[in-house]
Structures are given as structure tokens and as C-alpha cells.
Amino acid sequence: MRKRVAGREVTRSGRKHKPIAQRLGRGAVVGLIVVVAAFPLYWLLISSLKPSTRLGEVALIPSSVTFENYIAAFDTQIPRWLLNTFGIALLTTLLGVSVAALAGFGFARYRFRGRSVLFGMVLASLAIPEYALVLPQFTIMRQFGLLNTWAAVILPLAANALVLFLLRQYFSQLPEELFDAARLDGSGEFRLFWTVAVPLVRPGLGAAGLLLFLNAWNAYLLPLVMLTNSDQFTMPIGLAFLHSQLNFGIVETSPWGAITAGTVISIVPLILCLLVMQRQFIGSLTAGAVKA
């Protein structure tokens, strides 16, 4: 704690010497980035608050505000879909980070027979687009009798080669001396992993968790093929389902209201989660952790 405060003071005093113009310039750039990133989100928000007849309104502030879209969203299966999406994404993240952290550590810290072939296989699997993999995955899931279960979505998504790659990168940055020292103290290999390595790569675990979570959160094809009942749908499929009614011209009322409101409803808890996760993974990291 003390150290962190001291560290911050060093940088802050460093900042003091910078010319004010430079700080203003930086502020302006940050402001611009935030505005550009946030603008479509803002547009989504105000679109969700507009009556469906005013969706095409160009004004920055809507001329009338209504919650009818949110009421419409709760009339659909959106709450259920949201729950499914969260459940699947969370379980995928927990499982995916666990197995990838273990394996990432294994690949980064040990030399063993078959290491490069196995890792190369994992990497090469990334190159095949998921559209080519659906049919085989469907066949395999059927063999396992897992169709129409969350597992059919979670298991393939949790075995994420990209996340393994990312975590291996993080683990390989750690200096070997750390481990030698711990080994001299008589620590077992799993203890090394858990007490020495994991705390040092927490930002990496956070990034990996985000990657897995978002991958599951946005997954479309896999849940589409594996889950067939509309009360099992995840948000992306559910929204696509609402949208597709429109495309066929059979829809009675425009689904855009439910889609925009549903998206806002789904983003808000996610952003809150992000804020929490940040404190957990990124925020708590002390700057000098890796220097030892």
C-alpha cells in the first residue's frame, strides 16, 4: 500500500514538470477517443428510449422519451436469454481460464517431449474458421449426448487456443530465478504455479478471462447449432431471431425497440462486471511486481 502510494507520487511529480499545453493536448486526445468510442453506444441508448416511430430522428437529444421499448423487451424471452448468456459465459470463463492457465504455465515453464508439436497443433487449430468446425462439433456433441445442453456450448468455447497462447506469453515473461528460489524452499510444482506464477500474471488472467467471456458472450454459431429450444437461446441468437422475423416481412410490430432496449439491458450489468473485474485483475496490480 505504502509502496503504491510512493510509486504514484513519483509519476505524479514527473507529470508536474510537463508543460500545461501537453497535458491539455493529451486530455483532448483522450476526450476524442472516449467520444468516438461512446457515441454509437449513446446512439443505441437514445434509440432505445425513442418511440418506435421516431427511430430515424437525427437530433442529439431525443424530442420525446419513452420506456415502452423496455416494457416490450420484457415481454419477449429476453430476460431468459440474458440469464442463459450470463450463465454460459461465466462458466466458460471459469473453466477456460483454469485449463488455459495450467497449460500456459506448462508450455511456458517446462521443456518436454512433444512440447512444440502439441503447441503447434493448438495454434494451427486457430486457423480453421469456426464455420468449418460446426458440423464436426455437432457430430462430436451428438456422440457425447450433449446436444441441447449448456455443456455443448461451454466445452468447445472453454478450450480456447488463443487464450492458451496469451497466457503462455504472460508466463514466459517471468524470470526463471523466481521459480528456482521457490524450489530451493521446497515448493512443489503446483505450489509454484499457484503461489508464485499466478499472482504475477493476474493482468494476463484478467485479459484471458475477458477474452473468454466475450467470446462466449458474442458466440453465435455454436449456440445456434447446439441449442434448439427458444428458452435456451443466448442473447445473440435471440436478437437474431427477433430480427429475422423482420427480414421475412412477417413481423407484426417492429422488433427494433426490443432489440435496442434488450441490448442496453444486457450491456449495463456487463459494464458493472467490468468495473469490478478491473479492480480485481488490473487495478490491484502493483507496478514493480515483476522486477523481483
Binding site: L135, F138, T228, N229, S230, H243, S244, F248
Partner: peptide, 22 residues
């Protein structure tokens, strides 16, 4: 009754047909 998005009907059908059952 299974509701399938119109854009995905054929795709789901292809997967099921090629899978052989279900």
C-alpha cells in the same frame, strides 16, 4: 415446435441432415 431464425433454417437443416439423425 422448434423456432429457428429464418436466416438459419437451412444451415441448421444441413447440419442435421449431414449429422444423419436428430
Amino acid at each position: 415446435i422448434v423456432e429457428v431464425p429464418i436466416a438459419d433454417v437451412t444451415q441448421r437443416l444441413v447440419v442435421a441432415l449431414q449429422g444423419g439423425d436428430d
